[in-house]
Amino acid sequence: MKSVEDFDPVGFKKARLAAGLSLADVAKAIGSTPGTVGRWESGRGAPSPRLFAASAEALAVPKSSLLGPLASDADLATLRTRAGLRQEDVADSLDVQPSDISEMEQGTGGMRNEWGVVLSQIYEVSLDHLMRARAATEASWHERFDARRGQ
């Protein structure tokens, strides 16, 4: 499972301390262990989308306060994980199969036009940024494909 790439350990610690919670408090609230939460806070790991969303809720902060700046070349999977969503969550929102989301994020499947507005809302990004992420995903697929072909 993909971790939240842009997770900000400093922002996380700041939010935890502001909430007056220990590592153990946060771990218990989200169904994890203090050691795991401590690794996130020290920058030696990052939460899964599910635990990221649960952490923001437990700390009563917006997800954005636990993230670094969004890279201009972020791909679709990065947008999803930053929103604290699993592929299954996105599939449910679009009434499609998780495999459709997986293929879209790998660049092997398309993104239907009617998905754009929904995705931009649940990923909490502009439609323009969503389209840039789509282009970045497709460019990454082309790079991998060309590398396998020896070009």
Rank of each mutant, 00 (worst) to 15 (best):
Ala19Phe: 00
Leu23Phe: 13
Val26Ile: 12
Val26Trp: 02
Val26Gly: 02
Val26Cys: 02
Gly31Lys: 04
Pro34Phe: 01
Gly35Met: 08
Thr36Ser: 08
Thr36Arg: 05
Thr36Gln: 11
Gly38Arg: 13
Trp40Thr: 10
Glu41Ile: 04
Glu41Met: 04
Ser42Asn: 14
Gly43Val: 11
Gly43Cys: 07
Gly45Asn: 13
Gly45Glu: 08
Ala46Cys: 04
Ala46Ser: 15
Pro49Asn: 05
Phe52Gly: 07
Ala53Gly: 11
Ala53Ile: 01
Leu59Trp: 05
Leu59Lys: 05
Val61Tyr: 02
Leu66His: 06
Pro69Glu: 15
Ser72Leu: 09
Asp75Gln: 10
Leu76Glu: 11
Leu76Cys: 10
Ala77Ser: 15
Ala77Trp: 07
Ala77Glu: 15
Arg82Cys: 05
Glu88Leu: 06
Glu88Phe: 01
Asp89Lys: 01
Val90Pro: 10
Asp92Gln: 13
Val96Asn: 02
Gln97Ala: 12
Gln97Pro: 00
Ser99Pro: 00
Ser99Val: 15
Asp100Lys: 04
Asp100Val: 15
Ile101Tyr: 07
Thr108Arg: 13
Met111Gln: 12
Arg112His: 13
Asn113His: 08
Glu114Ala: 06
Glu114Arg: 10
Trp115Cys: 03
Gly116Thr: 11
Val118Gly: 00
Val118Lys: 11
Ser120Thr: 03
Ile122Met: 04
Tyr123Ile: 09
Glu124Ile: 00
Leu130Ser: 07
Arg132Ala: 13
Arg132Pro: 01
Arg134Tyr: 14
Ala135Tyr: 05
Ala135His: 11
Ala136Arg: 07
Glu138Trp: 00
Ala139Phe: 09
Ala139Ser: 13
His142Trp: 14
Glu143Gly: 08
Arg148Pro: 00
